[in-house]
Design a protein around this nucleic acid. Structure first.
Lengths: 196, 196
DNA sequence: GCAAATTAATGATTTATTCAAG
DNA sequence: CTTGAATAAATCATTAATTTGC
């Protein structure tokens, strides 16, 4: 075994545990800076990169939602008779509620395993520095020169505008409702560039 | 006015021209490295970051496609009688065809405006180095160690795998076969979107 | 008990949709 | 309205679980 090329990241139990803890605490879409920190901390438990953290949150969030959706659907399908309003509340709200108090930074110190190693690991650039910042733009970095943001610039938690997905899937047709797939056969929907 | 924070990138005509030229040449989804180079070149004509290039291609591709879809749809709606096979080839194929010969790297030297400035600009880290490489992972870098792929593995151009799913397996329903999206059901709806 | 063959999870990409600045 | 930016959904691909035959 040369070195196990292992194309893809395989989270260690510790890493996974911490990530899940963070997720439960409300972390949804950490920005570049936060990802950096998370990565730095997790790096102590094994090889990891910023993108891994990024993807993990993306996937975890998406699949959590998917799972819920599926459950609801299945339930709805099987039990024609809609039970009263006493259906078991879908739990997710719990996490959301917790998020309200803004736990992002706090979580970082959850385990506060004061291992200088972590920081070092990140700083020493394992094999390439972690300064990445593309799609996951860190809105902050640009403000590096700022030092004097206009106000709420730094005030609000930089990344995820607080809790957008709070109401996960309010059956609102937000994204699933209207698409503009004009060629989708079916109704001769008027896709005619509408009112222009 | 502090310094015109200018939240979003505004491409100069030159930059735009070059980008469009590249797009026409077949560039669709440049990887991190390529984006770096493009950024470096375009940086000569004005402020620009990797993410801008990334987003530009994303959006341009998506909207080009959308535009076509819409046009086709409109046509199909207006002209009930389906024209023979001589309908104007949906253009995208053109790009695809061009892509077959793999123009990505070549394009880089399309203009080969040997301005050391560009490279310098990128290298000097305007205010932060451009080594980014997150979501836009460069599939190439990881493959560096490979060296011994199973076959067409390396043959295909690194980025947009032209036709990977082509004939991997004999329709064994391994992973792509079945979906279980239970809630799909109604997704038709008109495309209007009405632009609120 | 084990290894090849399936299936289930999940990491990584790509595509579609949405938001909001100009 | 156009389009840069951001997010979510869909999809692909690889790893881990598991089943199965020996």
């Amino acid at each position: 075994m040369p070195q196990t090329p292992s194309t893809r990241w395989c989270p260690t139990p510790e890493q996974l545990m911490i990530l899940e803890e963070m997720y439960r605490s409300g972390v949804r879409t950490p920005n570049a800076v936060e990802i950096q920190q998370i990565t730095a901390h997790l790096a102590y438990y094994g090889r990891i990169e910023g993108k891994n953290v990024f993807y993990w949150f993306q996937n975890h969030k998406a699949r959590e939602r998917q799972r819920l959706r599926r459950r609801l659907c299945a339930r709805h399908q099987q039990q024609q008779p809609s039970p009263p309003s006493s259906t078991v509340p879908p739990a997710p709200t719990a996490a959301a509620a917790g998020a309200v108090v803004q736990v992002h930074p706090a979580v970082m110190q959850l385990h506060h395993h004061h291992h200088p190693y972590a920081a070092a690991a990140a700083a020493q650039s394992h094999h390439l520095q972690q300064q990445a910042e593309w799609p996951v733009v860190d809105y902050c970095s640009t403000a590096s020169a700022s030092a004097s943001a206009t106000a709420a610039d730094m005030a609000i938690p930089p990344c995820c505008r607080p809790l957008k997905t709070l109401e996960l899937f309010p059956t609102k047709s937000t994204s699933g409702g209207l698409k503009e797939d004009c060629c989708s056969s079916s109704k001769s929907s008027s896709c005619s560039t509408s009112t222009n």
